[in-house]
C-alpha cells in the first residue's frame, strides 16, 4: 500500500490547488512504531506530510462529524462505509466531500506483533506482503497476513463503497470468510458462561471511553454515560456500571457498525469489545439481510418498518 502515497499526495495537492476542497483529512507518520496520526492538510504544500501504510487503522469518518467546510478525505473500505452512514444520519453532506478512495489490504495489529516478540520494537518496515520488525537485538520478518487486525482478517469490503477519486486499482475482495466464528462460540455458551465471559472480558476496563470516542458512530452531544439529569449509569468502577456502559454503547451501534475495529484498536488495555457489536451486526445480517454503510440510498433497518420484519420474539 506504500505505493499509494504519491497518488494520495498528488490528488490531495490538486484538489487543494483548484479549491475543490478546503482541507484534506488523512494520516501523517507516527512518532512511535506502528502508529500514525490523523492529520489534515490545508495547503498544497502541506500534503507532503500525508502518508499511507498498514498503520492507518483509525476510522477517519470520525473526523467529519458536523464539519461545515468542503473536505477531501482519504477513505479505505470501512471508512467509506462510515462516511455513508454519516451521510444517511445527516452528520455530513455528500456535496461537501471529495472521497479519495483507498483499496485496502488490511491494517496490522500492533498488539499482536508486540505479543509475538520478546523485546521492545524500535522500527517496523513493510512491503506489499511482509512486515519487518526490528528491535535492539532482533530482526524478524512477519507475513502481513498473519498479523492483521482481526476485523481486517475477516473483512469482506476492503474497497471503498463510495468514492470520487481512487488512488489505485481495486483489490480483490476476500471470499468465503467466516466472519462470525467468535460470535457463534459465545452464542453456544450457557447464560452463566456468557456472564462470566463478559465479566472477564471487561475486568481491565478503566472507562477511559477510548472505544466510544474512536467510533464514528458515537457523536451524541451528550453521551448517556455523561448525562447527569437523569443519571442512567453510575460513574464508578463498579462492574455493573462498567458492563452497562459497554452493552449500551454496543446497542447504540446496532445496524450501524461496520466492524472497522477502531474501538478495539483504541483500547489501552486490549479489550476486544467488538464481540458485542459483532453480535448485533450478525443479527442485522441474518434478520434483515443488512450490512451497514453500503448505500446512501437505503434506509437502515432500525429506522424503517416493513410488514415482513421478523417478529418472532413478540408473543
Amino acid at each position: 500500500m506504500l505505493s499509494y502515497i504519491d497518488k494520495i499526495r498528488e490528488t490531495s495537492a490538486r484538489l487543494l490547488k483548484d479549491c475543490s476542497v478546503e482541507m484534506v483529512i488523512g494520516f501523517r507518520k507516527g512518532t512511535v512504531p506502528m502508529m500514525n496520526e490523523p492529520h489534515f492538510a490545508k495547503t498544497a504544500e502541506a500534503v507532503d506530510k500525508l502518508v499511507w501504510d498498514s498503520n492507518c487503522g483509525i476510522n477517519l469518518a470520525n473526523y467529519l462529524t458536523n464539519r461545515q467546510e468542503k473536505i477531501g478525505i482519504i477513505a479505505k473500505g470501512c471508512d467509506s462505509r462510515n462516511i455513508v452512514t454519516h451521510i444517511i444520519e445527516n452528520k455530513i453532506k455528500r456535496e461537501q466531500l471529495i472521497i479519495i478512495g483507498v483499496p485496502c489490504s488490511g491494517m496490522i495489529d500492533k498488539r499482536k506483533i508486540n505479543a509475538m516478540l520478546d523485546g521492545e520494537i524500535n522500527d517496523v518496515v513493510e512491503d506489499e506482503n511482509n512486515i519487518t520488525v526490528k528491535g535492539n537485538d532482533f530482526e524478524k520478518i512477519l507475513n502481513k497476513r498473519d498479523v492483521l487486525q482481526q476485523n481486517c482478517a475477516v473483512c469482506i469490503h476492503r474497497n471503498p463503497v463510495i468514492y470520487d477519486e481512487l488512488v489505485a486499482d481495486l483489490v480483490e475482495e476476500q471470499e468465503g470468510v467466516d466472519r462470525y466464528a467468535d460470535v457463534r462460540s459465545i452464542e453456544a455458551m450457557s447464560s452463566e458462561e456468557k456472564w462470566k465471559y463478559f465479566d472477564d472480558l471487561l475486568s481491565n476496563c478503566i472507562r477511559c471511553y477510548a472505544c466510544r470516542n474512536a467510533c464514528p458512530l458515537c457523536y451524541c452531544p451528550t453521551c448517556f454515560v455523561d448525562e447527569s439529569r437523569p443519571q442512567w449509569v453510575g460513574k464508578s468502577q463498579d462492574p455493573t456500571d462498567v458492563r452497562t456502559f459497554h452493552f449500551l454503547r454496543a446497542y447504540h451501534c446496532a445496524g450501524r457498525c461496520t466492524d472497522c475495529g477502531a474501538c478495539e484498536r483504541a483500547c489501552p488495555v486490549g479489550i476486544n469489545m467488538r464481540v458485542f457489536t459483532k453480535k448485533l451486526e450478525k443479527d442485522c445480517l441474518e434478520l434483515f439481510g443488512w450490512e451497514a454503510g453500503m448505500s446512501a440510498d437505503v434506509r437502515p433497518p432500525l429506522d424503517t418498518y416493513k410488514p415482513g420484519d421478523p417478529d418472532d420474539f413478540i408473543k
Binding site: 496520526e37 490523523p38 492529520h39 489534515f40 483509525i58 470520525n62 473526523y63 478503566i206 472507562r207 477511559c208 471511553y209 477510548a210 466510544r212 470516542n213 474512536a214 483504541a266 489501552p268
Partner: peptide, 16 residues
C-alpha cells in the same frame, strides 16, 4: 488546531 485535530477526547492519556 493541529495538535488537537487528531484527538478523540478519550481519557486514556489522563488515566494512564
Amino acid at each position: 488546531e493541529e495538535v488537537a485535530f487528531a484527538c478523540i477526547n478519550c481519557g486514556t492519556c489522563t488515566y494512564v
